[in-house]
Design a binder for these strands. Structure first.
Lengths: 353, 353
DNA sequence: GCAGTTAATGAATCGCATG
DNA sequence: CCATGCGATTCATTAACTG
């Protein structure tokens, strides 16, 4: 069921419908036994293959390339005889013919992600302030503007750039709920009270007071301890320090603290989380730590390798490798490589009636 | 000269060219003698009338209605015999037939604002996270994507709303430079170092250190005192407290601290600032305090009245009232009212050859 | 002056009337 | 009926006031 039509849309020459890979060309992903799974393949096919199965996700997180026009590299560190040796390896390619080409691909993936969501679930799309605006107009088309929940601003600190402009120190996370009519999964989190509030009211919760004439009076102090202020949509979380233990060397790695907030607020234990651009596996690691089931998708075997190592370092052995096969010739090389690497392949049953 | 064509655009049924009021229908605003001026009239006409004149602005600030679908009210306070009496008066109407109608009007004003900018000047458009994305796509069309400078996030603290979502606690300010090839007006401002940085490095400035093989070493501490970190694009500034002295009662009033940052960073003394939605006159007050010339435009005589009082409380007597006249019948009542109120009317010479 | 106390409110949100 | 509107409810926030 598509959302109500949105009169204001993005237009570009030759804009086509967003692709929905036909079911006939896919092997559908089965519900797996393990609570953390890795899917190797094109994420458009993978999202469609998952959507054709019976499972529904409470959170789909997408951290696509930001249309930077660059090829991003993975910094691999190893111990050589002269100390630590750094090797630069290509990780993912963020070069596109044009903005419209980028948006065409992104839109298809957003659409397939939506199909995979539970009615109480949500999509979180992680972008930067240059692409977020185009992405939001696309999302409004796909989900309906009513489904827009939050623009979360992730504010971080970094080494300043020499520029005649304000330093860019934030990313944007767009959150859409699948169905605005359904009560969404949401756990209220709190942040510390502002210093000025704490000074005036201490740690007690306040209560609004209205007199007989309907006018506001001074709020009263209650016995209850305040849990803090309900969490806002601007999050001050530091980027992964160059020497941090969680750092993998994979480019554009996101901090676990950021993902933990999202996962805690938007899902409950045992819910399914899908990360369509898995990368170094931050989402999977956080999901496992917080007792959520998770599936990570990535096209790059190197990314999956890093994720697999990271998970096993956490003692998570139960994850499986699986591979989305498209029957088309294009993905045959992946399939052959998978066979050579001894990866099991999962296929799945039909969508419930 | 229009910017390079942008292939990705917003489309809606019946989208028309953005209106540029024909010069023949306008009386053009003259450069005024006073450093703070008020213009009463429709801001589209007023921006066009200013653009047809000789002056160029280094900052055009626009704080339009946010497409809230509501009529906003002004809380007027006066001293009655039973204490303070509050009266609710309509201030501005933010009800629209549709999003496209809103965007059509907004786009015309953005376009006229651009025409008025100095090559080293910039536009700042203040919106909320629901409209910012549409507004940015429009601005990219009008200015060219290259002219996009910053998405500034204004983060404030407010009473919590009871909602199954992250609390919305930020506004968005989109900044575009007039000409990306020209060195923009920009004064580097600083913010306090992060606590973790101050702990490690104290108040001294750091210097990057690179060894003979081109590898980064631990940075060195310099003698120089650090001025802080170059100001970022996420600003934590409190809203105007219910009991603050600067509060006028006019709805959606912006804090002076916010405007002061913008004005200091984006203009130099004696530069011209134009506020197309002047409201209670915050921009004018700040501009005057910082020694910038300023013109405020508003359609509402009540808004101008509040601004005039606010300015005269600051000892600024030199401001003039002027009125943009359109020769069309539609604005005749305004003109008649202006005459009745004894307001002088400024008209101006032609654009320079 | 400084520190502790007081005051006022919402570019909110929700839910029940009203056509 | 299903939009729309208006009235009731919310409590963290911070400048001004008081002693």
């Amino acid at each position: 069921m598509p959302p109500a039509d949105h009169a204001v849309r993005l237009a570009w020459p030759g804009r086509a419908e967003f692709a929905r890979p036909p079911l006939a060309t896919l092997k559908v992903v089965q519900p797996g036994a393990a609570s953390t799974r890795l899917v190797w393949g094109d994420n458009l096919s993978a999202l469609a293959a998952l959507g054709a199965g019976q499972e529904r996700a409470h959170l789909v997180y997408m951290d696509p390339p930001f249309f930077t026009g660059r090829e991003h590299t993975h910094v691999e560190r190893s111990r050589g005889k002269d100390g630590i040796v750094r090797r630069l390896l290509p990780a993912f390619d963020d070069r596109w013919g044009s903005l419209q080409e980028y948006l065409q691909e992104l839109g298809s993936r957003i659409q397939s992600a939506r199909d995979l969501l539970d009615p109480a679930g949500c999509l979180v799309l992680h972008v930067d302030p240059k692409t977020s605006h185009y992405a939001k107009v696309l999302c409004d088309e796909i989900f309906g503007a009513q489904a827009f929940a939050s623009e979360i601003v992730w504010r971080y600190r970094r080494w300043p750039a020499k520029t005649k402009n304000f330093q860019r120190v934030h990313d944007v996370l767009l959150r859409y709920v699948r169905d605005p009519e359904t009560e969404p999964r949401f756990k209220q989190l709190y942040e510390p009270l502002a210093p000025s509030t704490a000074k005036t009211w201490g740690k007690s919760r306040q209560r609004a007071v209205v007199d007989a004439r309907g006018r506001r009076r001074r709020s009263s102090v209650t016995e209850e301890a305040s849990p803090g202020a309900p969490l806002g949509d601007v999050w001050d979380i530091s980027i992964i320090a160059p020497v941090a233990r969680e750092r993998t060397g994979y480019p554009t790695q996101k901090p676990e603290a950021l993902m933990a907030r999202l996962v805690e607020a938007c899902t409950a234990p045992d819910d399914l989380i899908v990360d369509a651009y898995c990368g170094s596996g931050t989402t999977l690691a956080v999901a496992a730590r917080l007792g959520r089931r998770a599936i990570g998708i990535d096209q790059s075997p190197q990314a999956l390798e890093i994720s697999r190592k990271r998970l096993s370092a956490l003692g998570i052995q139960a994850q499986e490798e699986c591979l989305v096969l498209q029957k088309r010739e294009r993905l045959r090389p992946l399939a052959r490589a998978a066979g050579a690497a001894g990866l099991p392949v999962l296929v799945a049953g039909p969508r419930p009636a």
